[in-house]
Each structure stands twice: as C-alpha cells, then as structure tokens.
Design a protein around this nucleic acid. Structure first.
Length: 314
DNA sequence: CGACTTTGACCGGCGC
DNA sequence: GCGCCGGTCAAAGTCG
C-alpha cells in the first residue's frame, strides 16, 4: 500500500500551464548555464568550481533527503497496513459505541478504499435494468463521499467551511448522536451541480467542524476561474478533489494551532491526533520530491541563485 | 428587490 | 402499522 499514491499532496506551484512553464524553466536554466559558461571561459575558474562543488553537494543532499523521506514513508505505510490488519481482525473494538445502523453502514462506506467497485458489486441482480442503473448512479454518488475536518476559532460558532465553492444552505437539523446542529448545503455555483455538503461540529471537540461532501462537482473550481476569490481560510491541497474520488488533505489556516488534516480513506477516524501533521509533512515532502514541476522550479531557483551569486562576485 | 438564511413541516427509510 | 430519525422543502425573515 503506497500511501503517497492515494494522497495527492502535490502543490500547484503556480505553474500554468505546466508544460509551457517547464519549457520556460528549462530555457531559463539553459540560458543561465550558457551565460555562466560564457563567463566561465572569460573569467576566473575558482568560483565556478566552487559552484559546481556546491551544486554537487546540494544534489547529494537532495538525494539523501529523498531517500530518507522514502524510507519514512515506507515505514509509515508498513505501520499503517499493520494497523488496518489489526482493525480488521478486531472489528468489535472499533465499534464500541453501538449507535444506529445508519452509522454502521456509513462507516462501512467509509472504510471502502474502493467503494465504487464494492457498491457496484452489491447492486441487486433481481431489480430491473432501469432500477439498477438508477441505484448504481445513486451508489456512485454515495461512494463519492469525503470528509474534511477544520479547526475553527473557539468563539466561532458558525457552521461555515470555506473551501472555495459557493454553497446555499437549505436546512439545519439537530441529530441524535450530536447535540450541535447539522447544516445542509448545496453547491450553488452551478445550478445543475449535484454536490451536497453537511457540516457539523465534532462530538469530541466542538472547535472542529466536520464537513461531509457527497457527489462530485460538474464544473471547475471557482478559484481556478477567479484566482483571487477573497480570503479562503481552508486550503484543499488536492485541487482535483471535487471531481475525483481521490482523497483530500485539507489544511486549516484560520488558527496558529496544529492543522487538522483528513484523508477520506479514513473517514471513521474521528480523533484528531497531534502526530497527524507530522504525516502530512512526510506526505508533502515525498510528493514534492516526486513532483517534476517542483524539481524544475528548484533547479531554476538554484541556477538563478548561483547566477546571482556569480554576478555579485563579479 | 433579489439573494441568502432560518426554521417548522413534510417525506421516506428503517426497526420494532 | 407505528414511531423515530435524517434529509429536504418552502414560506417567512433578514440583509445588502
């Protein structure tokens, strides 16, 4: 189980469009090296060799860090799979609170790392084609459920989770298992968008908002259409989240407290533990080292820095 | 005045 | 069949 493969923590480093930018960076690096080469031939060689040494050192360090990160991720994945195995072998311990059946089915949905396939497998063969199609469609929508945890200010009692989309509240209800009300939202950015969102405060920690997303957006993310759409406090790292069943990692930037992260494969993990951000760091670092855009940007930055150093020296 | 929120009523699924 | 519960509707209220 490769954790990094299902948690996309790659950062969009403002590289638009990526291919074009890659080419620009490549050219820029080439130009930088060419200009360096020109100067190399014309001026003293010592700073150049020092620079080459520095570059070698940096790349060696980078390699070492990459290896360390890979190692860390591997051990994390091993631990994680052990935990999953343990949970599977001791399912009763996981369900110590015997709440309603709905909850059970919900958690079973959430535990499915490949929920769509499982749902399709469950569809009844006795029903008519039309019914089964309808059922499957509903099940697919149900399968596209993700949950995001957002820590809010203690004084903030609103049930608003800023994720960049436009939501219209259409209901609020106090549920049995949680004294705080649950708010129901529909995506109002596109009239035909089927996505719904439920927001409720966590039972364990009232300062944590639990936003449950159902379905997928049939329109682009508003923030992509309108780059600066006001102060959004909640950052969804996986920008593709709404249009895919891929999990989401969300950072809450509203407070200086430890960020709350979520991965939708772990929807029944209600307890937000302090060590989780550590994992996030690992995932992000791992993703960054694998991200060609980041690498290209890094190379460009290093070469630019080297060029600048050279110019200062001259 | 239009867009959005609030809130009580209503509906459907599920268990007993 | 009845009651409970979560989800949705829609009229009324609020706000800019």
């Amino acid at each position: 189980m490769d954790f990094s493969s299902w948690v996309n923590t790659s950062l969009n480093l403002n590289i638009n469009p990526p291919r074009f930018h890659e080419q620009v960076i490549k050219k820029e690096v080439e130009n930088n090296f060419n200009s360096l080469g020109m100067r190399m031939s014309s001026s003293k060689e010592e700073p150049t060799t020092a620079m080459v040494e520095e570059l070698k050192r940096v790349s060696a360090e980078n390699k070492k860090l990459t290896e360390m990160l890979t190692e860390m991720c591997e051990s994390y994945n091993t631990l994680r799979s052990n935990l999953v195995d343990y949970m599977r072998k001791n399912p009763d311990k996981d369900q110590h609170n015997s709440s309603s059946k709905r909850r059970k089915s919900e958690s079973s949905n959430n535990n499915n790392s490949n929920a769509m396939v499982v749902y399709n497998g469950n569809s009844e063969s006795s029903s008519t084609d039309e019914e089964s199609c309808k059922k499957q469609r509903e099940e697919i929508i149900k399968a596209k459920i993700s949950r995001v945890y957002v820590r809010t200010q203690g004084s903030d009692r609103s049930l608003i989770v800023k994720d960049g989309y436009q939501w219209r509240k259409y209901g609020q209800k106090v549920t049995r298992d949680n004294p705080s009300p649950r708010a129901y939202f529909k995506c109002s950015f596109a009239p035909t968008c089927p996505v719904k969102k439920k927001v409720q405060r966590s039972v364990e920690d009232q300062s944590i908002l639990v936003a449950t997303y159902e379905g997928e957006h049939n329109h682009p993310h508003p923030s992509k259409m309108e780059a600066t759409s006001g102060p959004s406090h909640c950052v969804t790292l996986n920008s593709a989240f709404p249009n895919s069943s891929a999990p989401t990692v969300t950072l809450n930037l509203t407070t200086s407290k430890k960020s709350i992260i979520n991965d939708s494969k772990n929807l029944n993990t209600n307890i937000v533990t302090p060590q989780v951000p550590q994992n996030l760091v690992e995932q992000m670092a791992n993703s960054l080292t694998k991200d060609p855009n980041f690498r290209a940007a890094l190379v460009a930055a290093i070469s630019r820095g080297a060029l600048h150093k050279k110019q200062v020296e001259n």
